[in-house]
Design a protein around this nucleic acid. Structure first.
Lengths: 235, 235
DNA sequence: ATATTTTTATGCGACATCGCAAATAAATAT
DNA sequence: ATATTTATTTGCGATGTCGCATAAAAATAT
C-alpha cells in the first residue's frame, strides 16, 4: 500500500529463492524440503505497517495474507499465531530503532555538543513518527509510535504484549540514564544536575511527540516543540 | 443468555419507573411513550470502562449489551452505532477530567504555591491513570489514559476519533498555556521563562505517566517521577 | 377505552475471522 | 528413481459481529 520504508534492517541472509535456487551467494546450506517462496523479513515489515496503521484487532490474518501474498497456513507455519506474528514484527521494529539510537546517542569526543546529540536523537524519532518519506510532504501518514499506538490498546488482554511494552520502556529509560550519567562524567552537564531527571525529560518528550504525531502534528510542529524544550534544558 | 438478571430493573435516576410512575420527584415532564428502563449515563460509564480496558475493536456490542443489561437495539436507538457510542463515552470521560482540572488548576491567591498546584494536578492524573480505588492496593488495573489507550489505535481508521484526539490535545495545551501565562503575570515564574515551554513540559510528562501507568507502573513509581521533575522545574 | 408514541425483546441474514485438515508441489537425501 | 522433508494450496466448520426488521410492552393523549 503505502511505501513506508521501514527502518531498513540489513537484508537478512537468504535461505533460497523459489525462482532461482542458486542465485543466493550465502553459504547457508540449503535446507531439505521445498524452499520458502517468500522472505519472512519482508513479510514482517509489511505486517508491521499493517498493525501500526490499523491496530492489532483490526488487522486480520486474511488481510495480512492478501497484502503479503502469503497464505494463512504458511503464515501460521512460519510465525505462529496472530499474537506471535505481532510480537515478531514489533521486535523487528524495536531493534531497528534501537540500532539507530546506538548510532546517534554517542557521547565520546569531549567537544561533542550535548544539545546537538539530543537534537539528532529527536530528529530520528520525529522522522520515524511522521514517515520517512521526505518527498511525499505531509500527505497525512500520522504514524506515531507503533508500540504506543497498538500495545497500549492490547496490553490488558495479552500478557506478552504488556511485557514487551514494559521492556521497551525500561530499555529507553536505561539507555538515557546511561547516556546522561556518562555525559555528566564528561562534564557536559553540571554535577548539580540529575541524570535520571534529564532522562525522564527526554523520554517524556518522546512519548509526547509520538502522541502528537499520531494526532496529525506535522514534522515542523514537532521540531518546534523539540527546539523549545531543548533550548530550555540545554541553554 | 447465561446471566439473565430476571426482572430486576436497573435503578433509574428519573424519567419514570416501570413499577411506580409517580415516584420520581423531578419536574421534567414525562415523555409520551414507554419510559426507558436504564440510565444512559450509567451505561456510558460502563461502556467507557469496557472500551478503556479492551479497546474499541475488541469490545463488541454484544459484550456491551451483556454487561449493561441493555439490548443491542436499545443501545443503537439511544446512542447510535458503535462509533457514536464510543464518542459519547469518551466525551463523558473528557468532561469529567476537564471538570477536575478546572478545580485543581487555579492560580489565584498570590501566595499560591505554583509547585503545589502542579503537584495537585499530577495527583489527579495519576489517580485517574492508576484507578481511583485506594483500598484495592495494586491488584493490577493498569488503566492509563482512555484516550491514548484506545484513540491512538483507531485514529487512522475513524476520522471522528482522530478529531476528538486532536481536540483533547489542543485543549490540554491551551489550558496549560493559559495557566502559565497567568502564573507569569502573577510573578510565580520569572519573566525570562517561557509559558509555552513550561506547558509542553507538563503535557509531555502527563503523556509519559499515562503510558507508564498502562505498562504497569505503580502509583508510587509515577509519584517519584513527578516529584523528580517538578523539583527540577520549580526549585 | 382507544390511539399514539416510545422503548424493549427476539431473531434472522450476511459477512468476517480463526484454526485446522487434507491434498498438492518442490526441493534434497539415499 | 524413490523416499523424505518442507511449503503451499484449497477449503471446511465453528464462532463472533453487526445491522436491520418485526413483534410485543408500557407509558401518555384524546
Amino acid at each position: 500500500m503505502d511505501d513506508f520504508k521501514g527502518f531498513e534492517l540489513p537484508d537478512v541472509a537468504c535461505g533460497g529463492e523459489a525462482a532461482d535456487p542458486q542465485a543466493c551467494a550465502c553459504e547457508a546450506p540449503r535446507k531439505r524440503g521445498r524452499p520458502r517462496a517468500f522472505d519472512p523479513d519482508a513479510v514482517l515489515e509489511t505486517v508491521l505497517e499493517m498493525f501500526w496503521m490499523r491496530g492489532f484487532a483490526n488487522t486480520s490474518l486474511d488481510d495480512i495474507a492478501a497484502a503479503t501474498g502469503v497464505s494463512r497456513p504458511s503464515l501460521s507455519a512460519t510465525f505462529g499465531d496472530k499474537e506471535a506474528l505481532y510480537l515478531k514484527a514489533m521486535e523487528r521494529y524495536r531493534q531497528a530503532i534501537s540500532g539507530k539510537l546506538d548510532q546517534v546517542l554517542q557521547c565520546n569526543g569531549q567537544n561533542d555538543n550535548l544539545r546537538g546529540i539530543i537534537n539528532r536523537y529527536f530528529d530520528v524519532m520525529i522522522r520515524s513518527y511522521t514517515g520517512d518519506v521526505d518527498g511525499e510532504s505531509e500527505a497525512g501518514e500520522c504514524l506515531g509510535c507503533a508500540f504506543m499506538c497498538t500495545a497500549l490498546n492490547e496490553a490488558p488482554r495479552h500478557e506478552s504484549i504488556m511485557s514487551v511494552l514494559q521492556g521497551t520502556i525500561e530499555e529507553f529509560d536505561a539507555r538515557f540514564e546511561r547516556f546522561f550519567a556518562k555525559a555528566q562524567k564528561m562534564g557536559h552537564i553540571g554535577s548539580n544536575q540529575n541524570p535520571k531527571v534529564m532522562s525522564q525529560m527526554i523520554t517524556s518528550l518522546t512519548s509526547s511527540l509520538a502522541v502528537r504525531a499520531r494526532a496529525g502534528a506535522s514534522r515542523d510542529d514537532l521540531k518546534a516543540i523539540v527546539e523549545a524544550t531543548t533550548s530550555f534544558l540545554f541553554p
